[in-house]
């Protein structure tokens, strides 16, 4: 019997991956790899650039708003003060090269003016601040909350899981918009409550997604190995369970930013969220509704802004999904 094994084992073979094999396998994990994959995908790349562009504008106008009190808006020629009514009031002007019953478009207001004579382009640009802040913050709240709840719930199972998931189901059963409106009615109509409200309402989305992954991840042998090595539960969840469950959550988060922007625009349209005169896309839409016939272009511009932003996030999300999916080999 012993002879059997000796013939197979004793002979010294050169250890397989020594020669040159080390560099040839590419690391298929991590941020650098993911970005590389996303860059290969042309639609995802476009989404990424659009988001980068809008985010840059949002950062610029936020600085102007918070620190400079619209000084930059006054300094840059084609921008106007986004909130104050102008001295010479030309309401509902059409864009350049077009005419409506109230006048014809001028280069001073390339996209026309709104019902109070304010420049639409300026207000669109300054509207990115609300849209992006709300999109990212609401998603961040949902992401962090949902990930923690979902990971704990999936990892421990049993009654912990039952309690957390039934609460989640309860929240999920209430329509999204109704939930946020109820939340804002209780706490206040301010935009920051809209942000928190949308964040809380999106916790179930992330919670369920990550829980379903964690339930399978927790059975993996490296989790067992970590337990056998004496790692604390908390560190197992944070270091081993969540990072391995995170890929679909990241994709969902990207899509969720778009969804949040859309929801908050909807809220603003209904009169919740950003209050006049703060420029926001949803509120511009709401205002334009009354002037659809005399100035149809007024309502088109904020619509396009919302559409482009949401589509950009969707494109990036799809690209990320492909990049992070181990089954797609490119």
């Amino acid at each position: 019997m012993m002879a059997v094994h000796e013939t197979q084992g004793e002979e010294e073979f050169a250890d397989e991956p020594t020669e040159g094999g080390v560099d040839e396998v590419e690391a298929r994990v991590g941020l650098a790899y993911t970005l590389k994959q996303v860059k290969r995908d042309s639609t995802a790349r476009m989404g990424f650039y659009i988001i980068a562009f809008i985010t840059a504008i949002a950062a610029f106008v936020s600085i102007d708003y918070y620190l400079l009190d619209y000084a930059m808006a006054k300094a840059i020629p084609f921008l106007h003060h986004p909130e104050r009514d102008p001295e010479v009031i030309n309401t509902l002007l059409p864009p350049v090269g077009m005419e409506n019953g109230l006048g014809s478009g001028t280069w001073e207001h390339p996209l026309g003016t709104d019902h109070r004579g304010r420049d639409i382009l300026t207000r669109l640009i300054y509207g990115t601040r609300i849209a992006m802040t709300v999109g990212f913050m609401a998603t961040a709240i949902g992401l962090v909350g949902g990930t923690l709840v979902g990971a704990v719930s999936g990892y421990y199972g049993g009654w912990v899981d039952d309690v957390l998931q039934r609460i989640t189901d309860t929240i999920y059963a209430i329509p999204f918009l109704v939930l946020v409106i109820a939340f804002m009615s209780a706490f206040g109509r301010d935009i920051s409550y809209a942000m928190v409200g949308v964040g809380i309402a999106s916790i179930p989305v992330f919670n369920r997604l990550i829980r379903s992954r964690v339930v399978s991840i927790r059975e993996e042998e490296y989790i067992e190995a970590a337990k056998a090595a004496g790692v604390k539960d908390r560190n197992i969840i944070l270091r081993h369970v969540i990072p391995n469950s995170f890929a679909p959550v990241l994709v969902q988060a990207t899509l969720q930013v778009g969804v949040s922007i859309l929801i908050v625009a909807g809220l603003s349209f209904l009169g919740f969220g950003a209050q006049p005169p703060t420029p926001s896309w949803g509120q511009m839409l709401a205002a334009s509704r009354n002037y659809m016939l005399p100035a149809p272009t007024f309502s088109i511009w904020p619509g396009i802004a919302i559409l482009v932003t949401v589509v950009a996030f969707n494109l990036l999300g799809d690209g990320l999904q492909d990049a992070l999916d181990p089954r797609i080999n490119n």
């Binding site: 994990v29 042998e221 490296y222 067992e224 190995a225 970590a226 056998a228 270091r239 391995n244």
Partner: peptide, 16 residues
Amino acid sequence: IAIIFQDPMESLNPVF
């Protein structure tokens, strides 16, 4: 007491 598991493919965390 340390333990070595059966499947070396599965016993290491793939993301670190």
